[in-house]
């Protein structure tokens, strides 16, 4: 029987140095943070990371695992600027900076297996003066000069979902599915961490089909990771942990502060993480933040 279950450390063992890795979610929403912490515990490095960035980027940047960042923002929402990201960027971290929608088109192009998709996004800006960009002339009567957004092909995508069965039929139950589907389609391999791995019948797919992110043929591996998006949210199961986010922000204040954060929340067996951040009951009871 098809069984894609593995541990989060198994997932990271499938990745290798220098890969282009897409990280799902958006800023402080549904980030596969348990997988990101597993990357930090591993030696994985020189990654090209593609992300609608949140604390995933700050953590990887703080540990210098990113060779190149493909992004359009890194935001913690309630703390608009991520100090770890800022420090890395100001030290010269290589980036490809995209418009948010351009990012979407790049993933879409990869998903469609075409080299680029045309758009007006970027016209008149410094975005298209980055060396990655070319323009293309419409072959029709209008002759408009358009931006050719290059395909953002991913070696692997890391996503966090609410439910999965062992075959990789997944549900993302949050009100906004974000762009995880495109990430999955743009990637050669897709690994999901899931709040719960359940029998297929429990997915209640007849009622929940609209929450089915993509077909299981795209999913390579499924790792159960309860509260695996913490400190980001996996609404409706749990909300953003503002208190922990503050600890994360404060950990950028000095090398010692970062070492202490790392020791407390990263360098520990994943099964001990939940207790370290206050236990599952506390996280499950976090109030919904106001945007």
């Amino acid at each position: 029987m098809l069984d894609k279950r593995m541990t989060i450390d198994d997932v990271v063992a499938q990745l290798s140095d220098g890969m282009t890795v897409g990280i799902g979610g958006w800023a402080t929403r549904r980030k596969p943070m348990a997988l990101v912490r597993a990357i930090l515990r591993s030696g994985l490095k020189d990654l090209t990371v593609v992300s609608y960035g949140g604390p995933d980027i700050g953590l990887l940047a703080a540990e210098k695992r990113i060779r190149k960042l493909v992004f359009s923002f890194v935001s913690l929402d309630h703390y608009p600027l991520d100090p770890h990201f800022r420090a890395a960027r100001q030290a010269g971290l290589e980036v490809l900076e995209l418009d948010e929608g351009m990012f979407h088109l790049g993933l879409r192009a990869a998903a469609m297996r075409v080299p680029f998709l045309p758009t007006r996004i970027g016209a008149g800006t410094d975005i298209i003066r980055q060396p990655a960009f070319r323009t293309v002339r419409s072959p029709y009567e209008d002759g408009e000069e358009l931006i050719a957004v290059p395909a953002l092909k991913l070696d692997a995508a890391l996503l966090h979902v609410h439910r999965s069965d062992q075959r990789g039929n997944v549900l993302t139950l949050s009100p906004d599915p974000l762009f995880d589907e495109l990430m999955a389609r743009a990637a050669d391999k897709v690994y999901v961490s899931a709040e719960k791995v359940v029998p297929t019948a429990e997915l209640d797919m007849r009622a929940n089909a609209r929450f089915n992110l993509c077909e299981r043929s795209l999913i390579t591996g499924v790792a159960e990771a309860p509260f695996g998006a913490h400190p980001t949210s996996a609404d409706p199961d749990y909300q953003l942990d503002l208190k922990h986010l503050k600890a994360y922000v404060d950990s950028a204040s000095s090398a010692e502060a970062w070492a202490a954060y790392r020791a407390s929340f990263v360098e520990l067996p994943p099964e001990h993480y939940l207790e370290a951040v206050g236990g599952p009951d506390r996280i499950a009871a976090l109030p919904k933040p106001v945007y």
């Binding site: 359009s72 923002f73 608009p80 100001q90 418009d99 996004i121 800006t125």
Partner: peptide
């Protein structure tokens, strides 16, 4: 400088697309 900024802020977000649509 974009390659090594004095101050890194958010990133361009949706500004490029908003501005031409």
């Amino acid at each position: 400088d974009h390659a090594k900024p004095k101050s890194a802020m958010l990133g361009a977000r949706g500004f490029p697309g908003n501005s031409v649509h």
